[in-house]
Design a protein around this nucleic acid. Sequence first.
DNA 1: CTGAAAGCGCTTACAG
DNA 2: CTGAAAGCGCTTACAG
Lengths: 328, 328
Amino acid sequence: MASIREVAKLANVSPATVSRVMNGTARVDEEKKQRVLAAIKETGFVPNEVARSLFKKSAKLIGLILPSIENPFFAQLAGAIERCADKHGYRLVLCNTGSVTEKEKAAMQMLSSMNADGIILTTSNEELREFTENCSIPIIVTDRVFQGSNKLKYVHCDHYKGGRMAAEHLIDCGCKSIVCIKGQQEISSARDRYDGYRDVCKERGIKEQTVDSAYDFEEGMKVTEEILETFKDVDGIIACNDMVAISAYKVLHKNGIDVPGKIQIIGFDDIALAKLMTPELTTIGQPVKEIGAKAAELIIFKDKYAKEDKQEYIFEASLVERETTRDI
Amino acid sequence: MASIREVAKLANVSPATVSRVMNGTARVDEEKKQRVLAAIKETGFVPNEVARSLFKKSAKLIGLILPSIENPFFAQLAGAIERCADKHGYRLVLCNTGSVTEKEKAAMQMLSSMNADGIILTTSNEELREFTENCSIPIIVTDRVFQGSNKLKYVHCDHYKGGRMAAEHLIDCGCKSIVCIKGQQEISSARDRYDGYRDVCKERGIKEQTVDSAYDFEEGMKVTEEILETFKDVDGIIACNDMVAISAYKVLHKNGIDVPGKIQIIGFDDIALAKLMTPELTTIGQPVKEIGAKAAELIIFKDKYAKEDKQEYIFEASLVERETTRDI
DNA sequence: CTGAAAGCGCTTACAG
DNA sequence: CTGAAAGCGCTTACAG
């Protein structure tokens, strides 16, 4: 790899001039400029980003810390973030944590020591709050919220309203006995979704019926069996996300229960798979692209956003009616 | 962030000594060592990876260049690579290219200028071969192969055998009229899978029937409609991957065709969704974890592998029988 | 407009 | 065992 020195020698100028030509940071004599450009071309010179980053204290890197990239919702989020980052010349460093606190901490530390420009974090772990507040680079929490922190920024969709929409839709579809599969209540988004469901139940005078589950296939299936045993008259299921909704469908189908004829199902997230499965899954969609792009922009344009002094960026969820519910 | 200088001052030693304590690169007087350790703790010092990387010419970074992280197979691959990388103290830089050549080239260049230790690349684009061969850091091509290159290393599963297994399984299940949905034939893995199918047809005296498709939902559905019109007696479909298989099922189901009763389906990859859908998808599984880990190790332990002088690392595909076929 | 110099924060010969 | 020095490859005051 050619260095700036070689280019300079070839063009008969100083390294400083080469740097100025590359970056357009100062006016350079036209003739010299041409010589530099020619020399860059001839040597195939590409500036070393590490050296640049050491000086600038910005590596043009965004850290992405996720429970698991295998979760389709997070994969979509990562895709959205990557596309936005790439557009502005930033790269993404991916860290899977399996929600293990020590890994999350290690990733944050590593990322700061890499001069990353910021971190986009999705964690289930509220204990992490203090640690994140002391991190030397900006952290954007996506999809979830830490209670009581005012140092971080948040980007997520309105899960509470989403929860309401799910419940209301099922009621509109004629359901009388709705069971909500709650996600882990340590996760703020799961809490909010559940709260939405609960409030609608109260308002509409419907019995609140719930069951606990993790965001996970096996759990989803186990819990659905449980529902069938416990709530004999169930005619509507709100799943904490699409994965669980799909698992629920699987169990109902296996038990010969017609969906949506006998029991209706609604999921959460609108992952790509939701409309691919048979029957197509009704769900509450999140605007992942917008969420991902906003999170990335909050880091890329941090100076601009610093002035805005807004802490939470909230997007609207939307009902996506498909085939596991039937409006009447 | 504290620097090595501050730690040194606090411990009353030189920065060199601090470095030696941190890295264990030389014997240090026990008492000084303790002072250094205490000073590190007190200051919360974390060494700057950028400075380290500038000197070492290794950023402990692996570049991952993929068509799209949203594709579940690639998401699983990324997860496998990340876990292996993390175990050895390496980070992953994720680049989505949408298979756009210019993006692929830009990503490779960027990654070298970041002092990445190597690149794991999945591309459909054989024109890229020369460019990759001239890249200054090692490149491991996963899932696919460039024809005629002997500078790169390859990690993938035996797609040819996989194609054979799919065809043989369908025949064993009693299919007489099998249609193969070929993936894009510029992609070596799609070619190999198809070749496997074709050879089995020849050997078993079965008529070869094919249809072209991309690895994509919409295409999968369109092409399945086409199959239904063109091949009236079709009783088995080999899809180029699981996504397409799922789309095919969707179309068959919509047309009231019983699966596997009337038409049997087999996919490729064994993505998580395959066993989640209803009916569960029979498919040819790839050992993604092993593939991802091997690719990462080839970069992390490049010196060790340089001696091995092996260019291709091939893993076995395996038949995963589920509910869209029925052995007789 | 432009070059010499200093510096970003580490690491490793080198000399002692 | 240990410190002073040089250097990794850039960038930007500074002086001219």
